[in-house]
Computed example of a mutant assay.
Amino acid sequence: MVEQSSQDESASGRPATPRAQARERTMARIVELGNAQLAECGAAELSVREIARGLGMVSSAVYRYVSSRDELLTLLIVDAYGDLADEVDAALATVDGEDPRTRFRALAVAMIRWAIAHPERWTLLYGTPVSGYDAPAETTNADGTRVIARVLEIAAASAGDPRRDLEISSEVAALLDSHLAQFSVDAGAEAGVRAVTAWSSLVGVISAHVFRQLGADAAAIGEQILATQVELLAELLTGD
């Protein structure tokens, strides 16, 4: 996910200095090595010293780029969230203008395929929390909320079934209002409840498949099970 700008420009729009370009390449390599280490030994065993070896640096030098295991974890989490969200956005672009149910299917399939292709990164995002680590919201929220924002957009675009109007307490409605504002989506409390429920349920059913929680027999036909579950969640989200 971490890539060098094709124009080698800084955030200000001016051409990046050779030093800044070198740092950007090193950071991209750190994420690449971190993801490889993650796949090999899991999040709990991540080591900045191993990153230094991969870069051909002494340990003291690599700490100029990533100061701790927690900072490395944060880099990998942001990279994974961004990569997953990019896959979802690419899938949604292929069904632009389609009905909400079709758009949710495309989103769900993109998430499923990404999770199956990158089980270790999915585990980092949605598996057991790493002991002693708290992801900094100010760094991870932007990419971490992109997918649920798309789910919310789909829910807001759905007319819903008036026979299934939800009873939402004033406390829940107030909480939703305070959080929905950050997404810049014109959605009411009911769309918010549907979106959060569909998204969290989708994460759950994908995790059950990736972590083989339903047993070997179910794992053999897991994608068929997921297809049925996605249809149920699409019905929940769109109300039809």
Score class of each variant (00 low, 15 high):
residue 161 D to S: 09
residue 37 Q to E: 13
residue 190 E to I: 01
residue 86 D to F: 04
residue 183 F to W: 14
residue 59 S to V: 07
residue 153 E to C: 02
residue 28 A to V: 08
residue 155 A to C: 09
residue 217 D to P: 01
residue 153 E to P: 00
residue 119 P to D: 11
residue 34 G to I: 10
residue 156 A to W: 12
residue 98 E to D: 15
residue 224 Q to R: 07
residue 49 R to W: 04
residue 72 L to N: 00
residue 175 L to I: 02
residue 70 D to M: 09
residue 212 R to G: 05
residue 57 M to S: 03
residue 123 T to E: 15
residue 171 E to H: 10
residue 74 T to N: 06
residue 175 L to D: 09
residue 191 A to R: 02
residue 74 T to R: 05
residue 124 L to Y: 00
residue 199 W to N: 12
residue 21 Q to D: 02
residue 214 L to Q: 14
residue 77 I to A: 11
residue 112 I to Q: 14
residue 29 R to C: 01
residue 105 R to K: 11
residue 82 G to D: 12
residue 101 R to H: 08
residue 38 L to Y: 00
residue 47 S to M: 06
residue 44 A to G: 06
residue 183 F to K: 08
residue 137 A to E: 14
residue 156 A to P: 14
residue 153 E to A: 06
residue 55 L to W: 12
residue 143 D to N: 13
residue 203 V to S: 00
residue 181 A to M: 07
residue 187 A to L: 07
residue 196 V to M: 10
residue 4 Q to I: 14
residue 107 L to Q: 11
residue 34 G to A: 11
residue 23 R to M: 07
residue 87 E to A: 15
residue 215 G to F: 01
residue 237 L to Q: 05
residue 179 H to D: 14
residue 89 D to A: 15
residue 22 A to V: 11
residue 174 A to E: 15
residue 232 L to V: 12
residue 62 V to N: 05
residue 151 V to K: 05
residue 151 V to Q: 03
residue 171 E to D: 15
residue 21 Q to K: 15
residue 228 T to F: 06
residue 156 A to Y: 13
residue 67 S to G: 10
residue 161 D to G: 01
residue 86 D to Y: 05
residue 190 E to F: 04
residue 101 R to D: 06
residue 87 E to Y: 03
residue 199 W to R: 07
residue 197 T to S: 15
residue 18 P to T: 08
residue 164 R to A: 13
residue 199 W to H: 15
residue 169 S to E: 01
residue 30 I to D: 01
residue 184 S to R: 14
residue 153 E to M: 05
residue 170 S to N: 05
residue 162 P to E: 12
residue 141 N to T: 10
residue 136 P to Q: 08
residue 12 S to G: 00
residue 80 A to T: 15
residue 141 N to V: 04
residue 174 A to P: 08
residue 131 S to M: 06
residue 18 P to S: 02
residue 66 V to R: 10
residue 163 R to H: 13
residue 52 A to I: 03
residue 209 H to Y: 15
residue 147 V to K: 09
residue 188 G to P: 00
residue 20 A to N: 02
residue 12 S to R: 13
residue 19 R to N: 05
residue 192 G to I: 03
residue 10 S to G: 12
residue 106 A to P: 10
residue 204 G to N: 09
residue 190 E to H: 03
residue 49 R to F: 03
